[in-house]
Amino acid sequence: MVTEWLTWRTAMERALYGEGGFYRRGERPAAHFRTSVHASPRFATAIARLLVDVDTALGHPARLDLVDIGAGSGRLLSNILASLPSGITSRLVPTAVEIAPRPSDIPASVTWRADLPDRITGLAVANEWLDNVPLDVVEHTADGVRTVLVDPSSGSERPGAEPSAEDRDWLDRWWPLREPGDRAEIGHPRCAAWASVVGRLDRGLAIAVDYSHARDSRPPCGTLTGYRDGATVPAVPDGSCDVTAHVALDACTTAGERAGATSTLLTTQRAALLALGLSGARPPLTMAHSDPRGYVAALCRAGEDAELTDPSGLGGFGWLAQTVDIPLPPSLSSLTTP
């Protein structure tokens, strides 16, 4: 028997971040799904190169912020710190934003906090964070567009009230529903979350990396998905699994510009990582004879780069880069928004 019907936004909030929720109890993403961070430290190497570019654009400030939003296990920050020259690390203030408890193996220099810093001068990274920002779902029914209600214990759904005026405004601009059966995920909470990041930048760069889609290719049935123990499972918001939905990064782009972004790039992870020096190219076979150990190491790097830039996998993720009062880093400025 259903005891409570909730909007998806409320159900996700409770399931992920409420008392005893999936992330509140310290679940780590790597235990449930593969992220770029855990696929290879080469991802952190690319972010480290980006941080060096930002530091140069800022004129090598006395304090340089590096903020990892939705830090999970903290491995991204740890790997970035291991990749940086000492001239930066002596000025760097690394911060992990994460509601789960601090792991014991995080470097002492890392500040661990549950909320965003008030001001940021440097680089803010939101890797697979926005897809876990709770949102509502609507469906085009025979009676018009209705907010979808869910039973948090089973995942069963039923139509509820009409969407709010705010929801309708967002839908009309970013995800119009055309025929009965079409569903949409209302993205304005993600837009607001991203704007809160960009709005905290005094000077610097913010990047969001996530599953994404664009207005001209929204999935008609939505993207709500559950993950547990490395497998895709039904999106049941009972706290037993991660519940996620792809991100309308094009809508977040506009929100970031309204929050003060002075330059913007929306591209793919493949394009961004290739621009930052990853290639996936195999080393020449002759190297196997002249430098066997070097060949094996280069072959491993090539395989890791190939996974991170695979257009049908991690390389197909969206990358949104927005700056405040600095230009886009040279490593990214040659790319164009598709």
Rank of each mutant, 00 (worst) to 15 (best):
L278D: 03
C300A: 11
D291N: 10
A306F: 04
C300F: 10
A321L: 07
G313F: 03
G316K: 02
A306G: 07
A298W: 13
T309M: 15
E307C: 10
G315L: 00
G294W: 10
S290I: 13
R293V: 14
L320F: 05
V296Y: 11
P283I: 09
D291K: 09
G313E: 06
V296M: 12
R293A: 13
G313Q: 12
M287I: 07
Q322V: 02
A306T: 15
A302S: 11
A298R: 11
P311K: 04
R301Y: 06
S279H: 10
L314P: 05
A321K: 00
L278R: 09
L278T: 10
A281Y: 04
F317P: 00
L308Q: 01
D310G: 08
G316W: 01
W319A: 04
A288H: 04
P284W: 07
A288T: 07
G315W: 03
R301D: 14
S312G: 12
L278I: 01
D305R: 00
L299F: 08
R282Y: 10
T309D: 04
W319L: 10
Q322A: 02
D305A: 14
A302N: 01
A298D: 03
A298E: 11
R282E: 11
L278P: 06
A297N: 12
S279I: 00
P292R: 07
W319R: 09
E304M: 12
E307Y: 08
A281G: 04
G315Q: 03
G318Y: 02
G316C: 06
S290P: 03
P283W: 08
R301P: 01
D305W: 03
G313P: 01
L308M: 09
S290A: 13
P311E: 06
G316N: 09
G316A: 08
M287S: 10
V296I: 15
C300H: 13
D291W: 09
A321R: 06
L285N: 04
T286K: 11
C300D: 11
A306L: 08
S312V: 09
P311Y: 07
Q322T: 05
E304H: 13
V296G: 01
H289A: 14
T286Y: 05
S279C: 09
Y295L: 03
G318I: 00
C300T: 15
A321H: 02
G318F: 06
G303R: 10
F317R: 01
G294E: 07
P311F: 07
A281P: 01
L308A: 01
E304S: 14
L278K: 02
A302H: 07
L299Q: 15
H289F: 12
D310N: 14
L278Q: 10
F317T: 00
T286E: 15
F317Q: 02
T286F: 14
E304R: 10
M287N: 02
S279G: 09
A306Y: 02
G313R: 15
A288I: 04
L314C: 03
P283H: 05
R282G: 03
G318K: 02
G318E: 06
G280Q: 05
M287R: 13
T309V: 11
L320A: 00
D305L: 01
L285I: 15
G303N: 10
T309C: 10
Q322D: 12
P283L: 11
D310P: 08
G318S: 02
A297D: 09
G313L: 09
T309W: 06
A306P: 05
A321E: 02
E304Q: 14
R282Q: 12
G280E: 04
R282F: 12
A302G: 03
L299N: 13
F317S: 07
